[in-house]
Design a protein around this nucleic acid. Sequence first.
RNA 1: CGGGGCGUAGCGCAGAUGGCUAGCGCGCCUGCUUUGGGUGCAGGAGGUCCCCGGUUCGAGUCCGGGCGCCCCGACCA
Length: 579
Amino acid sequence: MRASQFFMPTLREAPAEAELPSHQLLLRGGFIRKLAAGVYTYLPLGWRVIRKIEQIVREESDRIGGIELFMPALVPEELLDETGRSKLDILFKLKDRHQRPFTLGFTHEEVITDIVRHTVSSYRQMPLLLYQIQTKFRDEPRPRGGVIRAREFIMYDGYSFDTDEQALETMYQKVRRAYTRMFQRMGLRTLIVDAEAGAIGGGSNEEFMILADSGEDKVLQCDKSGYAANAERCELPDPKLTPPPIDDVPPMQKVDTPNARTVEEVCAFLNTTPDRLVKTLLMRVDGKPVAALVRGDRELNPYKLMRAAGGESVEMMDAETIQHLTNAPVGFAGPVGLPPEVPIYADYELRGLQDFITGANAPDAHLIHVCWGRDFPEPIWADLRVAQAGDPSPRHPEGVLREVRGIEVGHIFQLGTKYSQAMGAMFTDADGTQKPIIMGCYGLGVSRCLAAVVEAHHDEDGIRFPITVAPFEVILILVNPEDAEQRAAAERLYAELLALGVEVLYDDRDERSGVKFKDADLIGIPLQVVVGRAVKDHQVELRLRTDKNPERLPLDHAAQAIAERIQAMKAALQPTEEV
RNA sequence: CGGGGCGUAGCGCAGAUGGCUAGCGCGCCUGCUUUGGGUGCAGGAGGUCCCCGGUUCGAGUCCGGGCGCCCCGACCA
């Protein structure tokens, strides 16, 4: 491609709207352009990278037997009614001319399950792995960081169908290895972490994170074992604390705490510290009221409560019900005197705490000298609090959790029968019985990977693309277009590189050399070939975007040498993981 | 949805206390110049000052309402 004929509007200054390096560089380099919040055009350079990423994802999916198809972006809302997901607030909704409600596809479990329930009826038709690469629509509450979190974005989504849990596990592990290979090929070093399933649901699931300080997700990593988990999922061990003796604890006593609702306010009022307080959170698990106790300086992880209570959904209780249950406004709930039908769960840590302060279930009042087992029944002990850096590892006795930040680029799920059950996707097994199909689903953010690659590979001059996803492999810089000798050499080398199948961007623009060098660095092409003054010696210069020391090549052999160099650079990104 | 910030030329910005033809840098166009890291000189084009309403002799500037965008948090596949 000749740069003079190409469309690459680079910017000297970064637009003020961009803060993350990847966002700034993609904008400046002419890879993307914003149309609305979280809605982006992929300009030619960006689109070339997207297509490279897609191709890697395709090849690795096909390698493990995946079959590509393409589903509609328009999804009838009633299909999502079957699983209850039509209620999700991130859906873009619209109506057709007959006022029939549609949504724009945000993920396609229902659509693929609809196809499969009408076409797969025998165990002989499985295992099956179907996938697509398609634009997804999610009306995110807060789009962020350019294409990192967009409202319209390109996603790979794969769906597997198996006859039993064992087969699903085999499939899941295959996809997991394929993902590892995909990211390796893109030059992304990923960390696989345990995760929350969110709106997708189902059983065990893992996220692929690339580590970056700008990442949205908090990841906790054990420094002794290989355990790593999204902070929202991270388990904590039962410290097996011995309850302190309560013989000398004075009787429970009600004290007035006017307008003191938050932990800070109560502590200030009673002149104590948050670790002497026990917070009582009233929640609903599968719609039923549940109380959760955590220490005042801790945070409840609602998903942990949900799992401890054996439920599938969890939400905060509304203020009205809290008022009704506790006879007090929000802020004064406590475990003492709750209706017996409200089960009380408490974090493991509280087993080692007695003589604490809680809400009194009365307006403007708290209780002091409270003891569990004495003033209210012994609660159900469970791991309930949000893990944080410095907490003990759940997998190693001496391990400590450390916090890192990550960008989630992939998420894989063992769904089980969540969708097949809800939508009636059944098959006949070898023994003639009807069973629900066992599903898995696998998402990978293609457009997010574009940003992630830049986030992981840049310096102060611009992007440093790994050769496997670079928009071009080589940029051929003609220093002085007026110089006939240079021009002839560049034209010749350009033709030779094209003939060898090299993806080359030939900067033949009528610009000063400085502009060309700056642009070359900015857009991050991994190999720069400079046709300049060395032409007098029948030589050109080859330099790497990552190492500016030039190497001189004789013009006659330059094309071949460059092609070989590209092969070597690609080989270095070949995945090590086998499937 | 809560908190903070911003909206003036394609991009980055300046335009106290209301006042004349609304500025600067970059980019763009023309000519010359220059050709190994965003060259220099000269000339030029380009604006519903986010929108609506109000106050005023007069509003980019003040007031009211709205919209858009960014950041932090909540949320998140």
